[in-house]
């Protein structure tokens, strides 16, 4: 049950290695590097909390760039069975019933601080990484789908069919539940999630990725300045994905 094998030893060694590297290399260069990427071999830490800010006023109806990019990055493709096809990210078109005001936004795993999917998972396959990313450990997922019953955002999909030609960085297969990973494999390489990258590449600027724990990050500054909302705030799940203009 415990996955914290030799944690303290590893931390000690990592610290030692980092220290040695600092002595050998020019100190200035090391510090600059450390400030950016997490060095290989170091675990994700709770000092960071990754999040997204989505500005629905900049998100155009009919634009699907983020969805396409996600599918390409993670190998999530349609198999011609829309009802059983997994969807990690989807565009929702909204229309206020009273006023008729309509807008559009991408919906995906909200990476809650209090994720119901993690609470209900019988094996602990659903888990939240130290830096706030909610993931499924497919090694111990038994495919019971209780997390899908528990998720208020319909963010999770069950893989109904066999898959081949996975991206080596994104393992996924039949019989397990999956969802948006916030492109954790890219984040670990100090890159942005594929959807965010595609959104800015298309000059839409509707998605912003960053560290919610760092008050100097752009995302934190924006949240501190503008009115932002969480989806289903009544559930008090403290989501990592925030929206503007809903």
């Amino acid at each position: 049950m415990s996955n914290d094998v030799d944690n303290s030893r590893r931390k000690f060694i990592a610290a030692g290695v980092a220290g040695t590297a600092g002595l050998v290399l020019a100190p200035g260069v090391t510090l600059l590097d450390m400030a950016h990427a997490r060095p290989a071999g170091e675990a994700a830490s709770s000092a960071k909390r990754w999040g997204l800010l989505i500005d629905s006023t900049k998100c155009a109806t009919g634009c699907n760039d983020c969805v396409t990019a996600c599918g390409k990055e993670n190998g999530v493709a349609s198999t011609g069975h829309p009802e059983t096809d997994p969807q990690w990210i989807r565009k929702i078109e909204l229309k206020e019933i009273k006023s008729g005001r309509s807008h559009s936004l991408p919906m995906m795993c909200q990476h809650c601080a209090e994720p119901p999917c993690v609470d209900v998972c019988p094996t602990g396959a659903s888990f939240k990484r130290a830096d706030g990313i909610v993931l499924v450990d497919r090694h111990i997922c038994i495919g019971c789908r209780y997390c899908m019953m528990a998720c208020p955002y319909k963010a999770r999909s069950f893989v109904h069919e066999e898959h081949e030609d996975q991206n080596p960085d994104v393992p996924r297969g039949k019989g397990c539940v999956e969802a948006c990973t916030l492109c954790v494999h890219r984040i670990d390489k100090d890159q942005q999630p594929a959807c965010v990258e595609a959104c800015s590449a298309g000059n839409h600027g509707a998605m912003l990725f960053g560290d919610l724990n760092d008050s100097n990050s752009e995302i934190s500054k924006r949240i501190a300045t503008f009115a932002t909302t969480q989806v289903r705030p009544d559930l008090a799940l403290n989501t990592g994905v925030r929206y503007q203009g809903i």
């Binding site: 094998v5 170091e42 130290a130 993931l135 080596p168």
Partner: peptide, 20 residues
């Protein structure tokens, strides 16, 4: 199995012990 826990749960990547 050890490395999968490291990578999956803690985000430690680039180890020579990885399946990749």
């Amino acid at each position: 199995k050890h490395q999968r826990v490291e990578t999956m749960r803690k985000g430690v990547r680039g180890s020579q012990d990885s399946l990749k």
